[in-house]
């Protein structure tokens, strides 16, 4: 494993700079509260893997979505487990990312020179909420349908163009099969890809700027 990686690293040159980062001395005064971001990222990785697996069986269609969920729960090997892990990791991700945000806010880690990292983190927070909201529709049961009807109708309260914004989000006048496909696309393509890019930027800036103060 180590030798194979060294052979790759001759071409990629990623080991040396990361070694410096991973083996550096941590600054004084850190506590486990500084692990909340890492816990949130772990939840993201678990969601990514279980999501890849669930997409093998889920069918984003008006007629088949609910049935495919029932099939995952009852027929697919360990389907109940994978779906359960996906659901609970989603809940944990929301909790961890909120606690992480609170920790950054309390320790004033949003201040210059890390203000851009704070902004990237806030964008990630918004996208995490969007992932939770779009994922909630996918089981396509009564709770999902009405939660999305109520949730998307909030967009209509925006002045001037609110109604059109709601239609845009729904992909129609009401929540329908078009909304299901739209939310599925957001949930499995747009949001994870955008989040991956934002998280890369987030971690890159931590490497450059340090956890606490500068490196």
């Amino acid at each position: 494993m180590g030798r194979a990686f060294d052979w790759l690293d001759k071409k990629f040159h990623i080991k040396a700079p990361h070694k410096r980062f991973l083996k550096r001395r941590l600054p004084e005064g850190l506590s486990y509260f500084y692990c909340l971001g890492g816990a949130a990222f772990t939840s993201y990785v678990i969601l990514f893997i279980t999501g890849l697996l669930l997409s093998q069986y889920y069918i984003p269609s008006e007629m088949e979505a609910f049935e495919s969920i029932v099939k995952i729960q009852r027929e697919v090997h360990l389907g109940w487990l994978i779906r359960g892990v996906h659901k609970w990791s989603a809940t944990l991700l929301i909790i961890f990312i909120l606690c992480h945000t609170l920790r950054v806010f309390i320790s004033r880690a949003y201040k210059s020179p890390k203000e851009l990292n704070w902004i990237v983190g806030c964008l990630t927070l918004v996208l995490v909420f969007a992932s939770g909201f779009t994922g909630y529709l996918l089981p396509w049961d009564q709770k999902a349908y009405w939660a999305t009807t109520v949730g998307t109708s909030m967009a209509a309260t925006m002045p001037v163009a609110g109604r059109h914004l709601m239609y845009l989000i729904r992909g129609g006048m009401d929540v329908s099969g078009a909304t299901l496909i739209r939310f599925y696309s957001f949930h499995v393509l747009w949001l994870p890809v955008t989040m991956a890019a934002l998280l890369w930027a987030h971690f890159h800036m931590i490497k450059r700027q340090g956890i606490k103060g500068g490196l």
Partner: peptide, 14 residues
């Protein structure tokens, strides 16, 4: 362990 669970999950049940 994750790889084993993933392979078992993807293996058709029927």
């Amino acid at each position: 362990g994750v790889a084993a669970v993933a392979a078992y999950f993807m293996y058709p049940a029927n």
